[in-house]
Write a protein that binds this DNA or RNA. Structure first.
Length: 572
RNA sequence: UGGGACGUCGGCAAGCGGUAAGCCACCGGGUUUUGAUCCCGGCAUUCGCAGGUUCGAAUCCUGCCGUCCCAGCCA
């Protein structure tokens, strides 16, 4: 059977190197045609868009090849991990649209077999208890260019090692007093092979095993065997574990157990943001943002609150591909994926962010007309909604200029524009306050233009969105921009602090925005296109009918802004 | 100066000895009751550099240069 381009193969590209490897394995029957992957997060932080790449890869592979993908928590370090994180991780993976059914595993499920295997290695003379201090171990390890030296405890007898290791488990040894190490080669050019630590003593309760253990396996000792136990065929991880692969294979070989194939790919970097767990944690703890789900965060929950859809994120993951080159993807591509998705699906609404009052002098006072506005021109099935029109309205500040430049074709004194779905209006008078600030526009409308066109077929250059003043619902709108002012905040010259590049204007909160009445019915997390402005979502936490709050997920493409920028013009 | 990996357009990324896909960005033009969407067109005589093999090389060989990872009882 030909599965080469089955299902969700990345759009517009050949298959990536991982799929090439899997196809070859399937062709040779290396794993009996089986494909079984896993996503193995450590529950010590929230998932971010980089994890989404890995999740989409691992679960996507399983889907594509009719295999399975496990969710496995790598919880070997009780000092850093917490249930808060396992819960958030499960929620995020689900939200992204993936199912692991009954395959929710924990490295801690394997503590017992791992212990037995350690005993086996001791018996085989391939592991020993070392009583060197942490500092001494580091000194004995050597450097990348100089070989290490053997620990004086390296040749303890099997019996002595067994006894000591039992004492470690029994809690009879103190933290830092000793560790269990693999006996490999202290002169190995790969530092990971210089007698790596397998167990350390941590007298800490574990979020799953409680106080049953006071020795915990290191990731290096736990990871390969966890994959082996679960029958993983392709163990996909990031580039930094490439150096560890020989170690994992050594362990599995000495143990004589099933060996999965580890494949490494480049982790995702995104422009104008940071991705390291440490930096994301600092953004939260130092309150540069308002939490893990702040809409400016590249976390899954942040993107979700920002208004991103799981589909857009999956499309993004498929679009960027998988390779071994370290790379930084332009955040504009992520934004593009969201627009692509929402353009098809989001219903349109009108909202005026920076209101400018307009009075139609020849429109009857007290009269109200209801126009039927299409909810989505891309999708006739989306239907229409009634929008009220009256003598006093609000339009966008930006849609009026008293002294417009050449290419401006919106409203200006004496100029005519169309109000979307309604009438043509012509500006007749500009009213200002004592400071000379425009406070109101007086206009006339053409009754013949009802619905947006006239019998004489004359053209208007611009179309504006608007909201009837007496029907408008006041709302709060939060605008977001890139979190950092530089493309690679995590990659700065010596001495520079990545925090120095935080964008002070990454968030703008607007109040008193004028929303069309239909928006009062929006449910939290419901997404819309605010006509001519962008895609917005009713805030997951703060939005209510009484106090509407919308987040701008991404703006629409803005050719006019580009023209202004290229002309060096100031616009309004 | 040790080991492991990687270098194809501004950013991703195909290509696997037969003469440089695609996407984003960018630049033009058309349609348009969103300056949106949509549509059309442009955008690597060249694949880190230098040699070599070959009728033919981004693809094979050699050397060089550059970038990333490794000295946690973190993952």
């Amino acid at each position: 059977m030909d599965k080469q381009n089955a299902g969700n193969a990345p759009i517009g590209s050949g298959k990536d190197f991982i799929r090439t490897i899997i196809d070859a394995d399937n062709a040779s029957g290396a794993y009996g045609g089986r494909v079984h992957t896993r996503f193995p997060p450590e529950p010590n932080g929230y998932l971010h868009i980089g994890h989404a790449k890995s999740i989409c890869l691992n679960f996507g592979l399983a889907e594509q090849y009719n295999g399975k993908c496990n969710l496995r928590f790598d919880d070997t370090n009780p000092g850093k991990e917490d249930v808060e994180y396992v819960d958030s991780i499960k929620e995020d993976v689900h939200w992204l649209g993936f199912e692991w059914e009954d395959r929710e595993f924990y490295a801690s499920d394997y503590f017992e077999p791992l212990y037995d295997w350690a005993v086996q290695l001791i018996k085989q003379g391939q592991a020993y208890v070392d009583s060197l201090s942490p500092d001494e171990i580091r000194e004995y390890r050597g450097t990348p260019t100089t070989p290490g030296t053997n620990s004086p405890y390296r040749d303890r007898s099997v019996e002595e090692n067994l006894a000591l290791f039992e004492q470690m488990r029994a809690g009879e040894r103190q933290e830092g007093e000793c560790v269990l190490r693999a006996k490999i080669d202290m002169a190995h050019p790969n530092i990971n092979m210089r007698d790596p630590t397998m167990y350390r003593i941590r007298k800490l309760a574990h979020h799953r095993t409680g106080d049953r253990w006071c020795i915990y396996p290191t990731y290096d000792w736990a990871h390969g065997q966890s994959d082996s136990i679960e029958g993983i065929t392709h163990s996909i991880c990031t580039l930094e574990f490439e150096n560890h692969r020989p170690l994992y294979e050594w362990f599995l070989e000495q143990l004589g157990v099933y060996r999965p194939k580890q494949i490494e790919f480049a982790r995702l970097n995104l422009s104008y943001t940071v991705m390291s767990k440490r930096k994301l944690l600092e953004l939260v703890t130092e309150q540069h943002v308002e939490g893990w789900d702040d809409p400016r965060m590249p976390t899954i929950c942040g993107l979700r609150r920002r208004g991103y859809t799981p589909e857009a994120i999956r499309q993004f993951a498929a679009g960027i591909g998988v390779a071994k080159v370290n790379s930084t993807v332009d955040i504009a591509y992520l934004e593009y994926c969201l627009r692509e998705d929402l353009n098809q699906r989001a219903e349109r609404r009108m909202a005026v962010l920076y209101p400018l009052k307009v009075v139609i002098e020849n429109y009857p006072e007290g009269e109200i007309e209801w126009f039927e506005a299409d909810n989505n021109p891309e999708d006739p099935e989306a239907g229409t909604r009634p929008v009220p029109f009256s003598r006093e309205l609000y339009i966008e500040w930006e849609d009026f200029m008293e002294d417009p430049p050449k290419k401006f074709f919106r409203l200006a004194p004496g100029r005519e524009i169309r109000l979307k779905h309604a009438y043509y209006i012509t500006c007749t008078e500009v009213i200002k306050d004592a400071n000379g600030t425009v406070t109101e526009l007086r206009v006339t409308y053409d009754p013949e233009s009802r619905g947006g066109g006239t019998p004489d077929g004359r053209k208007v250059k611009g179309t504006s969105h608007w909201v009837s003043a007496s029907h408008a619902v006041d709302g709060e709108v939060r605008l977001f921009d890139h979190l950092f002012t530089t493309e690679r905040p995590g990659d700065q010259p010596e001495g520079a602090d990545w925090r120095d590049y935080l964008n002070a204007e990454s968030r703008t909160v607007l109040t008193g925005c004028k929303l069309e009445p239909a928006l009062a019915e929006a449910q939290p997390e419901e997404r819309f296109q605010f006509l001519r402005q962008g895609y917005f979502v009713a805030d997951k936490k703060d939005h209510s009918a009484a106090h509407p709050v919308f987040n701008r997920a991404v703006g629409l493409r803005d050719t006019w802004a580009k023209i202004q920028k290229n002309q060096g013009g100031s616009g309004s």
